[in-house]
C-alpha cells in the first residue's frame, strides 16, 4: 500500500544542514496498522509528513497505492491527497465551523451535492459516536471528542490510508485508549491502512501489528510488534520497551537473564525444571505479563550463580523451549 524507497530529508537553514531522515526504506501492506516510534527529533514526524508531501522529501520515492507521489504535479498531488487522510496531535479543526461542517469540509472541497454530504456526514458522526454533537463548535468539545471529529473528517473522502501524526499525544491515557480502539475498529471494518507515529510504546502495543523504531533518521529496527517486543535487538528498542531500566543496580550480580515467554512456551514449568536439571538456585528479580494486541507475552528477569559454560547450556535449554533469552549480565 505504501512503499517508501531511499527516502531522505535534509533541512537547510542558512549554512546549517540538519539531516532528518537518512535513506529510509519501508513497506506498509494494505490493512496494516503500522507504528513508527521514536524519541523527539528522531525524524518520525518528518517521515509521516513526507508520505503526503506536507514536507518535500530531499530525495527518494514515496508510492501510495502504486502511485509515486514524488512525481506528481500540484493538481494530481491534490487529487492523490484526497485518498490519504490525516489526523493531527492538535486536531487542527476549524474553529469557525460546527462539527458537522468540519466533517463536511473535505466533501465541500470537491463540490459534493448537499444531499450526499448530509448522508455521509451523518454516517460518519455515527461511526465516531458524535451524532449528538453535530451542531456544536469544536471549542465546546473535549480533546477526545475533537480527535473523533478529526478522524471522521479524515475518513470523509473514503481514503485508502490514514496517517496519524501523534494523534493521541495530547490526550489522557483513558481517552487515548478509546481513540485507539476506534482506529482499530475502523481498520477492521474498512480494511483501512493506518500509519501511526508516536513516542508512546503503549500506543504501539495496543493497536499496531507492525512497528519501526526510528533513531537519528534511521530505522533501527523493524518487524511485527510481537517479535519486537519479545526480542528487541537494538538499545533504543529496549529503551522503549523499558526492560533494562527497572532493576536497581544492587540486584545486578551473578548472571542475570531476561526471558520472554510467548504462547508456545508459557505452558511449561521451565524455571522449576532448570533448577532441578542443572541443580542451581534461581532468584526471580521481576516478572510481568504484557498484552500486545491481546497476545500475552510473559517477561521474567532471573538471577543465578553459575559459570559461563553452564550459562550457555541453560540458554540453549530455554531456547529449545521457545523462550527468548537475553543476557543482561554475565
Amino acid at each position: 500500500m505504501i512503499h517508501i524507497k531511499n527516502l531522505s530529508k535534509v533541512y537547510t537553514k542558512g549554512r546549517n544542514e540538519v539531516v532528518a531522515l537518512k535513506d529510509i526504506n519501508l513497506e506498509i501492506k494494505k490493512g496494516d496498522i503500522y507504528g513508527i516510534i521514536g524519541l523527539s527529533g528522531a525524524g518520525k514526524s518528518s517521515l509521516i509528513r513526507c508520505i503526503n508531501r506536507l514536507e518535500e522529501p530531499t530525495s527518494g520515492d514515496v508510492l501510495v497505492n502504486k502511485i509515486n507521489l514524488i512525481h506528481l504535479k500540484n493538481k494530481e498531488l491534490r487529487k492523490a491527497r484526497k485518498k490519504i487522510g490525516m489526523i493531527f496531535q492538535n486536531f487542527n479543526l476549524l474553529h469557525s465551523k460546527t462539527v458537522f461542517e468540519n466533517i463536511a469540509f473535505p466533501l465541500k472541497l470537491v463540490n459534493t451535492p448537499e444531499k450526499i454530504i448530509k448522508e455521509k456526514v451523518n454516517h460518519l458522526l455515527e461511526l465516531v459516536e458524535l451524532s449528538d454533537k453535530a451542531y456544536v463548535y469544536p471549542s465546546q468539545l473535549s480533546g477526545g471528542q475533537k480527535q473523533r471529529v478529526g478522524i471522521a473528517r479524515a475518513l470523509a473522502n473514503e481514503p485508502d490510508v490514514l496517517l496519524c501524526d501523534e494523534a493521541t499525544s495530547a490526550l489522557d491515557p483513558k481517552t487515548t485508549k478509546q481513540i485507539l480502539n476506534l482506529l482499530k475498529n475502523i481498520n477492521d471494518r474498512l480494511n483501512l491502512t493506518i500509519v501511526i507515529i508516536t513516542h508512546e510504546m503503549e500506543v504501539i502495543k495496543e493497536v499496531c501489528n507492525r512497528v519501526a523504531i526510528l533513531e537519528g533518521g534511521n530505522i533501527a529496527e523493524e518487524g511485527s510488534t510481537v517479535d519486537i517486543f519479545s526480542k528487541p535487538q537494538n538499545p533504543i528498542t529496549k529503551h522503549f520497551i523499558n526492560q533494562d531500566e527497572n532493576l536497581p543496580k544492587s540486584f545486578i550480580k551473578g548472571k542475570v537473564l531476561h526471558l520472554s515467554f510467548t504462547q508456545g512456551s508459557a505452558t511449561q514449568p521451565l524455571i522449576s525444571q532448570i533448577t532441578r536439571d542443572f541443580d542451581i538456585d534461581v532468584n526471580i528479580l521481576s516478572g510481568k505479563i504484557e498484552y500486545i494486541q491481546n497476545q500475552a507475552i510473559g517477561k521474567l528477569t532471573i538471577q543465578m550463580d553459575v559459570d559461563c559454560h553452564r550459562l550457555l547450556d541453560i540458554i540453549k535449554y530455554f531456547e529449545k523451549n521457545y523462550v527468548k533469552v537475553e543476557v543482561i549480565k554475565q
Binding site: 506536507l54 493531527f88 472541497l109 470537491v110
Partner: peptide
C-alpha cells in the same frame, strides 16, 4: 490562524 489548520486543509487536497 494556527498553521496546523492550514496544513490540515492542504492534506485534504484544498487548492
Amino acid at each position: 490562524i494556527d498553521w496546523g489548520v492550514v496544513e490540515a486543509a492542504i492534506s485534504m487536497g484544498a487548492t
